[in-house]
Design a protein around this nucleic acid. Sequence first.
DNA 1: GTAATTGA
DNA 2: TCAATTAC
Length: 62
Amino acid sequence: MPVNLQDYQKKEYDVECDGRTTKLKPIKVWTLAPKGRKGVVIGLFKCPNGKTIRKSIGKIEP
DNA sequence: GTAATTGA
DNA sequence: TCAATTAC
C-alpha cells in the first residue's frame, strides 16, 4: 500500500539516544534521494538528552 | 557524490 | 557553513 510522509510522522521509531534505545516520533520527515535513483526517508528526532538526530526510517523507490 | 533538512 | 543521515 502507498505510504506517505504523514504516516511516518505518526509512527514511533527506535532511535539510539545516549546509548539508550528510545521510541520517538519524528519532529520532521522527508525523502532523501538523488535524481532518478532510489533513496530513503529521513526522520529528525529529538532525544530526551536534548540532542537532535537523523535516522533513516524507510526506503523510497524512484 | 548525490539528494533535503536543520542543529550546532 | 558544515555534519550527518542512507545506499547506490
